[in-house]
Amino acid sequence: MRHLDTLESRSIHILREAYAAFPRLGMLWSIGKDSTVLLWLARKAFFGHVPFPLIHVDTSFKIPEMIAYRDRLVREWGLRLIVGRNEEALADGRTFPDGAVDRIACCRLLKTEAMRRTLAKGDGGEPFQAVIAGIRADEEGSRSKERVFSPRGRDNDWDVGDQPPEFWNQYKTDFAPGTHVRVHPLLDWTELNVWEYIAREGIPTVSLYYDQGAGTRYRSLGCAPCTAPIDSTAKTVAEIIAELSTGKLAGIAERSGRAQDKDDAGGLESLRRDGYM
């Protein structure tokens, strides 16, 4: 298991560098397995504490089990949580599928725009300078091109053609005022690594990842209207690992159940250029 130790140490190093570089730092927590592993790593990095607020961008279409699980961990681990919502879009019914907009526009409004506003509002007045996000390079093409410390423009936009160099564990930590930074400690982790780590550390995960008897489970969690469960009878972490490494999922992409990836020929790239995770 040496490989997991290496991944763990590198991620902790990055979390501590981010904490040293940015006084106004937050961490995105989607309630999914990746950002929960990130939360666990933060508790390791800071010896049982999480010295910055967690940010949950709540579209209001999240599956109810996710919210119950979120609130339980907030209580048990003593976390500080900021919930961000685009209340205007919700009130106007600009949502998918029963509202006035398509899938991609719904993502833009309820996730990208909600996050942009939450980050701008910040924690106690001043906007966040940086947020930590649990994206992985193996999820999707544009994420495979990400930097560990990735600067965004004033509107959270991503200039993929001109990213700063980073080498020898030295990241870009000097920024012009108004720049906003995404920090990505999990880029080198694969989906299988995440589950192996969850097994090794005994990290609690939301029940939707496991078959509850109906022969289906969620492999990737998003909003109820746009995330479909997969056929699987994996009931435990060990069974998920077996399924991913040698079983029926060994050759199928993780986000195959996420519809917004398919609506646009450029994959997630267009969404991500505008500030999506």
Binding site: A137, D138, E140, G141, S142, S144, K145, G161, T190, G266
Partner: peptide, 21 residues
């Protein structure tokens, strides 16, 4: 398979480094 960015495919060159496993 590697050149996932729109500009990369349009120009047929790699612009930024990709991680694959």
């Amino acid at each position: 398979l590697l050149d996932a960015l729109r500009d990369e495919r349009a120009q047929g060159i790699t612009i930024d480094v990709a991680r694959v496993f």
